[in-house]
């Protein structure tokens, strides 16, 4: 049911290089790789600052994903896996990174990464991934103090949104903005389950609702649901959102409205926070092993 004719679910892969830096001049090059169920992210840090990252779709060949995620950065800059002093793997597929020196849970990595990009005041993190959703509390060191992960149910995950994009025939990257292109915010749809919600959404379309209105009702239901996960661990400022769905303003704005707190905005791809956290851990681990600190 995923593969529609036009692939409305398909989001774009991307690569970023900080052209002001040169990895060849760096002393400690660390890499974090986050193999998620839907996307794989790789981050390279040079002497503790972000140098490059790449995001690709996770493929079926588990052993290849990490290498494939690294490759776009190699193409752009010539850096090779062997040039990295230390590599930390994280994410659901972290056991399948043959060249990682160590693996760390994605919860700890998200805490570390969010604290790094969002600042030491970050206390509550929401990570909305392809097949799971996490709510995390951290202290000022980025250490996790409270967390929950929901990976049992597709509602509120990227996979759920892919199905919505297919149903409404709207490209997934436009879902957020189009959900605000309505006269008045509708009530959320009553079904949370992706499968039942799809039937309900279809019924609303039949009833004459515009696609955008159905979309708004659906995204509001997802926002309410994800908000209840955050409220379970407690809402404490400041608030940070990461993961693929964090790019969907239709969900993020609605969550902000429900929990009464605005998310800290950063100009970095929020999908890479886990991989970034892994790269930060990698530096600390490298220094510890070398007795630098």
């Amino acid at each position: 049911m995923l593969m529609g004719k036009k692939d409305y679910w398909r989001w774009s892969e991307n690569v970023y290089i900080d052209r002001n830096k040169d990895w060849r001049q760096g002393e400690i090059i660390t890499c974090g790789i986050d193999v998620g169920s839907v996307s794989t992210k790789a981050v390279i840090m040079v002497d503790g600052s972000l140098y490059a990252y790449s995001v690709i779709r996770t493929g079926v060949n588990a052993q290849e994903n990490a290498k494939k995620a690294f490759f776009p950065m190699e193409e752009e800059t010539g850096i090779k896996i062997e040039n990295c002093s230390y590599i930390v793997g994280t994410g659901y597929g972290r056991i399948n990174i043959p060249f990682a020196h160590k693996t760390i849970t994605e919860i700890a990595c998200h805490g570390k990464g969010a604290s790094f990009v969002g600042g030491k005041k970050i206390r509550t993190i929401l990570d909305m991934g392809g097949q799971d959703c996490k709510a995390i509390h951290i202290d000022e060191e980025g250490r996790v103090t409270n967390f929950l992960m929901n990976d049992k149910c597709a509602a509120g995950t990227g996979r759920g949104l892919e199905l919505l994009a297919e149903l409404l025939e709207i490209p997934i990257e436009e879902l957020g903005t189009r959900s605000f292109d309505i006269d008045e915010e509708p009530e959320p749809i009553s079904n949370v389950c992706v499968v039942f919600a799809r039937t309900e959404a279809y019924g609303l379309l039949k009833k004459g609702w515009s696609k955008n209105k159905v979309l708004a009702a659906y995204l509001r239901a997802i926002a309410e649901r994800v908000s209840s996960l955050i409220m379970r661990i407690g809402v404490e400022p400041e608030f940070f959102v990461s993961g693929g769905i964090s790019k969907n303003v239709g969900i993020v704005k609605r969550i902000e409205r429900i929990i009464g707190l605005e998310a800290v905005k950063v100009d970095i791809d929020s999908q890479i926070i886990g991989a970034l956290g892994a790269a930060i851990f990698a530096k600390a681990l490298y220094e510890k092993e070398r007795g630098i600190i």
């Binding site: 103090t145 409270n146 967390f147 929901n150 990976d151 049992k152 509602a155 379970r232 661990i233």
Partner: peptide
């Protein structure tokens, strides 16, 4: 650290 094991699905919240 407080850890919530379990899940939320459309039928309810089930966390230990």
């Amino acid at each position: 650290m407080i850890v919530h094991y379990g899940y939320l699905d459309a039928s309810g919240e089930y966390f230990i």
